[in-house]
């Protein structure tokens, strides 16, 4: 039972982060390789707001979330916007540079020492007992719940809201979308904002659960195979991909060797790329671009 809970928690983390990769890729066909850093940046924003507003933790979290939403939008407006219409490769390389830049910024402002925003906010992280003698920490449980909420929200947004439909339309045929009068820059900025927002939720909850330092980037990077295995332009795929990667990782930790944990997601990724490069639920025509 504990085994299943571990998979569920890890899958939630990966799924939450992977949704960010999918959002941006689906709308603009750009792989955001700075997603891990942006997620970490959100967590560090919480470190700062928590220090300033330790008496009202909820406000601190909401403020940090709002700021990360803005950060995502600003990254698009000031950086990625210039890349629209350019080669996808140029845009992807820009995100790599952005990631390195963010890592440097984080070291400069927050130092490399581990941070514990939960202690700053004065919160406990009690262990909850589940049936079958399994345990889960409070913030890990919140992570699972957040993932469910975020996915339900994203599905509803893309399906029913006008801007969600515009995001789908722009992803399918940006030219036609522009011709119909849809402001593509607004759509792309929204995708970046939402992507950074969901990433920041993951980053903050992980930080609240177990603290953070600059190695959090690795978690962001390991969520990337989850998005790719599922198919980069499918949210459902990201969810399933996250489950597969998490199950493989937890299984190997338990039955083989815990040292292999960081390798497994990429091993699964390589296998997937050989068998089905466009992922489980991805669109096949993307083949030439992967």
């Amino acid at each position: 039972m504990q085994f299943a809970v571990n998979i569920l928690v890890l899958a939630s983390i990966y799924a939450l982060i992977a949704s960010g990769y999918v959002l941006i890729y689906r709308v603009s066909r750009v792989l955001n390789l700075a997603h891990g850093e942006l997620m970490m940046f959100g967590a560090y924003l919480l470190v700062t707001t928590a220090a300033g507003l330790s008496s009202s933790p909820v406000v601190a979290i909401l403020l940090a979330l709002a700021m990360s939403l803005m950060v995502g939008g600003l990254v698009y407006l000031f950086l990625m916007r210039r890349m629209t219409g350019e080669m996808a490769l140029a845009a992807v390389l820009t995100t790599v540079a952005l990631g390195i830049l963010l890592r440097g910024l984080i070291l400069m402002f927050w130092s490399a020492s581990p941070q514990h925003p939960r202690d700053t906010l004065g919160w406990e992280n009690p262990v909850l007992m589940l049936p079958g003698d399994a345990r889960i920490s409070l913030f890990a449980a919140l992570l699972v719940a957040s993932t469910i909420l975020v996915y339900a929200g994203l599905f509803a947004f893309l399906r029913f809201s006008r801007w969600g439909m515009r995001m789908r339309a722009a992803g399918q045929n940006p030219l036609l979308a522009a011709q119909r009068g849809i402001n593509l820059h607004a759509v792309f900025a929204l995708a970046w904002a939402l992507s950074t927002f969901t990433g920041a939720i993951a980053g903050m909850l992980i930080a609240l659960d177990s603290g953070l330092d600059s190695t959090m980037v690795m978690i962001g990077l390991k969520a990337f195979p989850a998005a790719l295995v599922g198919g980069l332009d499918s949210l459902l795929g990201a969810l399933i991909g996250a489950l597969i990667i998490a199950a493989a990782e937890v299984g190997v930790i338990k039955y083989v060797d815990p040292l292999l944990a960081d390798v497994i997601p990429f091993a699964v990724l390589v296998v997937m790329l050989v068998i089905r490069p466009w992922g489980l639920f991805g669109t096949r025509e993307e083949l030439d671009r992967v």
């Binding site: 006008r162 439909m165 515009r166 789908r168 339309a169 399918q172 045929n173 030219l175 036609l176 979308a177 522009a178 011709q179 119909r180 009068g181 849809i182 402001n183 593509l184």
Partner: peptide, 30 residues
């Protein structure tokens, strides 16, 4: 293209004229 549309000219292109994965209602709603 979007500037031209904003001025009141609307093009119905020859190919790729609808969003295939969107429903009819969604095609109109976007």
């Amino acid at each position: 293209p979007y500037e031209v549309t904003r001025h009141g000219l609307s093009l119905v292109p020859e190919r790729d004229k609808v969003f295939p994965n969107l429903t009819v209602a969604e095609n109109l709603a976007v």
